[in-house]
Design a binder for these strands. Structure first.
Lengths: 131, 131
DNA sequence: CTGAATCCTTCTTGATACTG
DNA sequence: CAGTATCAAGAAGGATTCAG
């Protein structure tokens, strides 16, 4: 059997699509922003540098694991910088980079659209659920 | 023991935060947009109405289940309308509502930032990974 | 204080089979 | 053509524990 089964062809198509998909810049950005904690961390840093423990307190629901993980990702992406002060106990400050700051207007735009249109969305939901 | 354990207090805080968090309009919007298929469907519909099978083909990697599920959510939120033509076989068209169209500039803005800055992000990643 | 490593549960999602 | 229903696999996230 030289020909491929339908399942094999579908699988190949899916993998090709996933590969293309993973490369899409807007997709990468959305994947970042959509992370539950990313926008909260960015917003918490928008007013200036914050210590790890500050962030932990300001973002009340975050676990240590997720806060650290989020900060690592943002640092790797160049959106946030990390500064260690080797005192005892050690102190670590996080701060938005210029690149990170350039992203904030977008976060604001998302916030604006949401605030302006959330009523419409919820009204639509009520209509849909009533039907 | 009238006092609560630390674990209990943490759990309460987490639940309160989650409740507040779930109510946040920008969060709701981000949760929508961040869904793997939502922006793809919106973009596919941005040029006009499309049939279910059209969407299925244009968005190569999507499964029937996820396409249907995504369309249902968007319909419920009032972003997409669904029109059934009871021919044989049946024909179903999806189209952006005005509300859905009002969201597209935001999707474009995300795309723009991503395209402009993705190089910076990837350069930052290379630096981070090299260290 | 700041974090890393592990376990364990929950949620998501894709494949498959079936329907009007 | 346009879905619905079900199930199993994998990813994500929280709690906990240990460390510099």
């Amino acid at each position: 059997m030289a020909t491929k089964t339908a399942a094999e062809r579908r699988e190949e198509a899916r993998q090709a699509f996933d590969a293309y998909f993973a490369e899409c810049p807007s997709r990468k950005l959305l994947d970042r922003l959509s992370d539950k904690w990313v926008t909260l961390v960015l917003t918490a840093l928008s007013q200036g540098p914050r210590r790890y423990s500050d962030l932990s307190r300001r973002i009340a629901g975050v676990s240590q694991k997720m806060l650290t993980q989020t900060l690592r990702v943002l640092e790797r992406d160049g959106l946030v910088s990390r500064t260690i002060t080797p005192s005892v106990p050690v102190r670590v400050d996080y701060e938005l980079t210029p690149l990170g700051q350039s992203l904030m207007p977008l976060v604001s735009a998302i916030k604006s659209w949401a605030q302006e249109h959330i009523e419409d969305v919820e009204a639509a939901r009520r209509r849909y659920d009533a039907a």
